[in-house]
């Protein structure tokens, strides 16, 4: 363990404390902005697990965002359920959709899988557009006051002394922040576990992994299902805040997949802190280039291409390579008897 690691952990906890305190101390616009960034971060953490660790390069993640959002809307509008229960249903619906989607898309190898998932997402978008009870192609809105009627909003309103709309924003923000932290912790625990080790073994050499008893298809399908659940939860929560859903917005490949891919790639695909670094850079770019319309998408695209050409491990990978500092490392230390001397340099996972 490098001496910088406890320092890094202290810094991380301090940053987290500030993020949790934000709704009490910062203006509402900033909370809303950060909600958007956290949404992308959660999506990026999921996509990173999928593409960076399981080798499943999906361009169809918008399917899970859209299905999560629509299932949440259906739970609230058609079944009159609590919005927070709706979010959970959104996650479960996305996971349920992932089953047949995996059955189909797993027939396509490697690169073909990418376009295959994109096709399935388009099928989901077109299928949902036929759902007349939820507005068909033109979409629908949440009933007025849904967000304000959520559990805890009253108490937050009293505690922070703000309007109910701001209290609802604070609640969704805290939920998204908690989801991001949970994803990060779950990702770390999962990847350090036996299954995570198997996953990385498959990524590095599938034949060798099979020969020691790792079942690639089962493991990949499991990851696909779990990340679909996370992505669906995130999509449902995001649309509680947006309050209006249309098939084109809920299944947008740019908003829910392209941004996410660039964030992960620029930050560092296949590293755990990568998506966080990428999300920070994305937010900075968005603020910096906000007045120039589509330019920031062009800049993002070029940055993504440049990273793939010159630094495949992204900015976090470059940072770790230069400094040797690796927060949330995924490597296992060798058993004492096999390696009596502690290794001077550490490999990034």
């Amino acid at each position: 363990m490098t001496p910088s690691r406890p320092l890094g952990l202290i810094a991380a906890f301090a940053a987290l404390a500030v993020l949790y305190a934000l709704p009490a101390i910062a203006p509402r616009a900033l909370v809303q902005d950060l909600f958007g960034v956290l949404t992308l971060l959660v999506l990026a953490l999921n996509w990173n697990t999928l593409a960076g660790f399981a080798g499943l390069v999906s361009v169809g993640q918008q399917a899970f965002v859209g299905i999560g959002a629509y299932a949440m809307f259906a739970a609230i509008i058609l079944m009159d359920l609590n919005p927070l229960v709706g979010v959970l249903i959104g996650g479960l619906a996305a996971a349920a959709f992932a089953l047949p989607m995996a059955f189909f898309a797993f027939r396509l190898n490697g690169a073909y899988f990418a376009i295959g998932t994109w096709v399935v997402a388009d099928i989901a978008r077109l299928g949902i557009s036929q759902w007349k009870a939820l507005g068909g192609g033109t979409g629908t809105s949440l009933p007025k006051g849904t967000a304000k009627d959520m559990a805890f909003v009253d108490r937050i309103k009293a505690a922070l002394d703000v309007s109910s709309a701001a209290a609802a924003d604070a609640l969704t923000y805290w939920l998204m922040l908690t989801l991001a932290v949970a994803m990060l912790v779950a990702g770390h625990v999962f990847l350090r576990s036996r299954m995570g080790l198997g996953l990385q073994a498959i990524r590095d050499n599938e034949t060798a992994a099979r020969s020691v008893g790792v079942d690639p298809v089962r493991l990949k399908a499991l990851v696909f299902l779990l990340t679909a659940f996370g992505t669906g939860l995130c999509g449902a929560l995001a649309f509680i805040q947006i309050t209006r859903v249309t098939p084109d917005a809920a299944f947008s490949v740019i908003d829910w997949t392209a941004f996410v891919i660039f964030i992960t790639v620029i930050g560092g695909i296949g590293t755990l802190p990568g998506p966080i670094v990428g999300a920070v850079i994305f937010y900075a770019l968005q603020r910096l280039l906000a007045d120039y319309g589509t330019i920031y998408l062009i800049v993002l695209g070029c940055l993504g291409i440049a990273v793939m050409l010159f630094a495949r491990r992204g900015l976090w990978g470059v940072f770790t390579g230069r400094t040797g500092i690796d927060l949330l490392p995924l490597t296992h230390r060798p058993p004492k008897s096999a390696a009596p001397q502690p290794q001077a340099s550490r490999r990034t996972a």
Binding site: V57, F262, I298, I305
Partner: peptide
């Protein structure tokens, strides 16, 4: 397979938005 996929995906977004502007 990742680098060519991501490079061409980046290219797709760049071309699309380049044409748009």
């Amino acid at each position: 397979i990742l680098p060519p996929l991501l490079v061409t995906f980046g290219l797709s977004v760049v071309i699309q938005n380049g044409l748009l502007s």
